[in-house]
Design a protein around this nucleic acid. Structure first.
Length: 471
RNA sequence: CGGGGAGUAGCGCAGCCUGGCAGCGCACCUGCUUUGGGAGCAGGAGGUCGCGGGUUCAAAUCCCGCCUCCCCGACCA
């Protein structure tokens, strides 16, 4: 029974396909105010899983969660020159409260360096107070010119980590640990997105940072997405917020700081890195629902058997749901679960039961296999593992296939139409970045000769620039 | 902010040129038959035609002004 495609085909119109997926997988809707977003229950369930994975890794580094206010005195933003310059154009400012005009305008946080550091100044007195390692889960507001659900919304959810250290070396090491052990690991191991990690150029780095480290993913259309950043703030904020401490020798010193964040943009990355023409595909380690037990027909024995199977799977640690909504047709329900990207379906009908089997269907590649009921639990566990691995392999192969080593900016611009271009930093030259930018291509990050983040003291001439079009 | 599209039922659209009962597909409700890849038939419900003004006996349609959304670009997590 042929029918119209469920979604706009990805190859036909990628942005349209993206929006179709968000709508039909019930991830998000536009909010009533331009650029705002409603995250629907299924989308939020995925976000909560992302949060849990990131939060656990943050805490493993010894960081504690805290919460700072949404409102920031405007004057705070002005203390750090580059910071205010970077964020001023996109601030939402509150000028009235309680029916009266405010004496000092209040800014809705675009990020929280300023408030948090004003408290760090209070809390840090001695080298014994260091390192101070805090994180908060919060919403922030940036008045973006061109909003796009999950990728660039006026209000978005994220975590922002803020730390203070006694030495530059310690701060740098911490920023890099976050980049690797929190972000890269979550993105690669959980989201199955093989991100590149590297350093931002001066032009691309965070407003107020000395160095910005980034995770860059390749989306299904070959464009790059910045999925998380970790900044070395040097002593820039310490100087303006007066974060000083007495070191072991009794000398007064400014703290060295980092900040780092990852946001609901990761939801966009998930869709664009793994989605296909049938909808979303969620990697098993991330999926809020890893398997759905699908009752084909409404027969009592089938429903009972399905419930039993679901209970066994749940007992084995699988996040499982039972679909016995047989007042919808089988085909409709299948399409619904495919749109949502649930990794596995266990289909159970009277024919299967007669044989003592169920049909195990993998969303990742569409393969179906009959499995004896007694062997279902291990089969599901295996299929989840295999799917996770295949998704990462597939995304990695895609990125490699779309990455070209080039020798000039012109070649890089050409290659960026399809994906990434790698260009020796020496060949980029002093004005190469500008020329690439004019062609709609940016330097996503600088990597060392081995492809990872450049090591401390690495010869700049040996670095490689990764260029691409970006979201 | 520059360029390009579009606002008509929950979603997708036709109608507009040439003014004359506001329509189609999907979704929704009821009933029956169905259910192994978006079921079929029958009967229903649902509308400030983006907003404001103007022309006219009469405006979704013509005129003026405004607003919003989407896509491409510059900015960004």
């Amino acid at each position: 029974m042929a029918s119209a495609p469920v979604l706009t085909p990805r190859s036909q119109d990628f942005p349209r396909w993206y929006q179709d997926v968000l709508a039909k997988a019930e991830l998000a809707d536009n909010g009533p105010v331009r650029g705002t977003m409603v995250i629907r229950p299924y989308g939020y369930a995925i976000w909560e899983r992302i949060q849990a994975e990131i939060d656990g890794r943050i805490k493993a580094l010894g960081v504690s969660n805290a919460y700072f206010p949404l409102f920031i005195p405007e004057s705070y933003l002005h203390k750090e020159a580059e910071h205010v310059e970077g964020f001023s154009p996109e601030l939402a400012v509150v000028t009235h409260g309680g029916g009266k005009e405010l004496e000092e305008p209040i800014v809705v946080r675009p990020t929280s360096e300023t408030v948090i550091n004003s408290y760090f100044a209070k809390w840090i007195q001695s080298h014994r107070d260091l390192p101070m390692l805090l994180n908060q889960w919060a919403n922030v507001v940036r008045w973006e010119l061109r909003p796009r659900l999950f990728l660039r919304t006026t209000e978005f959810l994220w975590q922002e980590g803020h730390t203070a250290h006694g030495t530059e070396a310690e701060a740098r090491a911490f920023a890099l640990r976050v980049l690797d052990e929190v972000y890269r690991e979550t993105m690669v191991e959980v989201l199955a997105v093989p991100v590149l990690t590297g350093r931002k150029t001066a032009r691309e780095r965070f407003a107020g940072a000395d160095t910005t480290w980034t995770c860059e993913g390749m989306m299904g259309d070959g464009k790059a997405l910045q999925m998380g950043t970790s900044h070395e703030l040097g002593q820039n904020f310490a100087r303006v917020f007066d974060i000083t401490f007495l070191d072991e020798t009794g000398a007064q010193a400014y703290a060295w700081q980092t900040s780092w964040g990852a946001s609901t943009r990761l939801m966009g990355a998930l869709v664009m890195a793994h989605g296909d023409d049938a909808g979303l595909r969620v990697p098993p380690r991330l999926a809020p629902v890893q398997a759905v037990v699908l009752v084909v027909r409404a027969e009592e024995a089938t429903v009972e058997a399905a419930r039993r199977v679901a209970a066994e799977l749940a007992a084995a640690g699988v996040r499982v749901e039972t679909d016995d909504k047989v007042d919808s047709s089988f085909g409709r329900r299948v399409v619904g679960w495919e749109l949502k990207g649930v990794p596995l379906r266990v289909e159970m009908g009277p024919r299967d039961l007669a044989k003592g089997e169920a049909v195990l269907v993998r969303r990742h590649d569409g393969t179906k296999e009959p499995v004896a009921l007694g062997a279902l639990v291990p089969a599901v566990l295996d299929a989840l593992e295999a799917t996770q691995a295949s998704m990462l392999e597939e995304a990695t192969a895609f990125r490699l296939d779309r990455t070209v080593a080039v020798a000039s900016v012109e070649e890089a611009v050409e290659a960026a139409a399809e994906g990434f271009a790698t260009l020796p930093l020496a060949a980029l030259g002093p004005d190469g970045e500008t020329r690439a930018n004019q062609a709609g291509v940016s330097v996503r990050c600088l990597v060392g000769p081995d492809g990872g983040p450049p090591a401390a003291g690495e010869d700049e001439a040996a670095l490689v620039a990764v260029l691409g079009r970006a979201y």
